[in-house]
Amino acid sequence: MLSRKYRNVYVFDLKSIVEEKGREQFYSKKLWYLGGIKYSMKAEKLLEQHINRCVASVKGIRKKCLILDLDNTLWGGVVGEAGPEGIELADFKEGARYKDFQRRLKEIKDLGIILAVVSKNNFDDAIKIIREHKHMVLREEDFVALKINWDLKSKI
């Protein structure tokens, strides 16, 4: 692939963007026949967002760190109330959305964005889930910092 061989070549994956939105919503037969415009208005806005993201990335304009809470963010429910077995984090139902969110965060981390946790929780309860829960995608080593205590988040 050219982008691997040359540092100044960037791949804009239009096919993936089309698949994400769906061909029927991405292309507009009406606009094509009226004015030779290939893409729908929704598609043009989506392309603009992706192009802006690419340009910002090339220019180095992007976020460097994502700080996350735990309860109702990385898993469903409040561990202090539900306990480690009572949180929502699974391959199915409500727990699946938290697991999918963690997968996306892992992708973001692998792109170079650092992850941290700031959470009002009992450290032992929270770290047990992070270290041992079978559906936890993100593990302790995925975070540069874990501030899990009862202090004000702004003071941590």
Rank of each mutant, 00 (worst) to 15 (best):
W75A: 01
I130L: 08
E88A: 13
G22W: 13
D91N: 12
D13T: 05
I130V: 08
D110K: 14
D71N: 05
K21W: 02
L68K: 02
M136C: 15
L70R: 05
L68E: 04
V118D: 07
G112E: 08
N122I: 00
Y27D: 06
G83C: 09
L111M: 14
G35K: 10
G80I: 10
W32F: 14
V9S: 13
Y39N: 06
N72H: 07
L2S: 05
R139E: 00
I114C: 10
V18G: 10
E20H: 07
V11P: 14
I108M: 15
W150I: 03
L111S: 14
N52M: 15
G22P: 14
Q102H: 06
Q102Y: 06
K134T: 05
Q25M: 07
I113R: 12
M1H: 11
R53E: 13
A43M: 07
P84A: 03
L70E: 09
K155N: 07
A82H: 08
I156G: 00
E141G: 01
V11S: 12
I61C: 06
E48Y: 11
R131F: 00
I37H: 07
L70N: 06
K155W: 01
K106T: 00
W75V: 01
F92P: 03
G76Y: 07
V58S: 11
L70C: 15
V58H: 10
W75I: 01
L68P: 05
I148Y: 05
V18N: 12
Y98W: 12
C54R: 09
K64E: 10
N121K: 01
I108E: 15
D100K: 12
S119Q: 07
L115A: 03
D151Q: 08
S3A: 11
S28L: 11
V79A: 07
E88P: 02
Y6W: 09
V117P: 03
Q25A: 08
G95P: 13
A96H: 04
W32Q: 10
L46N: 01
K153T: 03
S3L: 08
G36L: 11
L74K: 03
R4T: 07
L47Q: 06
Y6V: 15
G22F: 11
S16M: 04
L115G: 02
K21A: 09
K99Y: 02
V78L: 10
Y27W: 14
K155C: 02
I113A: 13
K153E: 04
K99V: 04
T73W: 08
